[in-house]
């Protein structure tokens, strides 16, 4: 390994730790879960209530569950099933993404739920 290699690796690891600290300091247990399909907000549900939510898009359906303050993707007819296998989430900023359906499930804080943070 050359010197430049070591510098590169150190810088990347430093960035990773920096970002991680930044995200985790900001993260707390979220208040709401926001479900967005194709850039459009479909629902904002409180984490305090256990619910099942079904989203229909042109490409298929997803069923999102809220239970004991945790959110997970219970079922989806997407091809890769990455969203279904994703661990359940509950901290602000955590997301479950179903790329084939362009669907994002994200945890937002109490105040943040008022604003639409979707870009584009």
């Amino acid at each position: 390994m050359k010197k430049a290699d070591k510098i590169l690796i150190l810088v990347l690891l430093f960035l990773a730790v920096g970002f991680a600290v930044f995200f985790f300091l900001r993260a707390d247990v979220g208040g709401y879960v926001r479900i967005t399909a194709d850039g459009e907000v479909k629902a904002e549900l409180p984490l305090s209530e256990d619910t099942l939510f079904r989203v229909e898009t042109d490409t298929g359906y997803n069923i999102i569950t809220v239970q004991d303050g945790y959110v997970s993707m219970q079922e989806a007819d997407c091809r890769d099933q990455i969203c279904v296998e994703h661990k359940k989430i509950h901290l602000t900023g955590e997301t479950i993404v179903c790329l084939p359906h362009k669907l994002v499930v994200e945890i937002v804080g109490e105040k943040e739920a008022e604003f639409d943070m979707v870009v584009g």
Binding site: G39, L99, K102, V104
Partner: peptide
């Protein structure tokens, strides 16, 4: 694609 920069998490 999902129009959500939050993936940077």
């Amino acid at each position: 694609v999902v129009e959500n920069i939050k993936l940077m998490y």
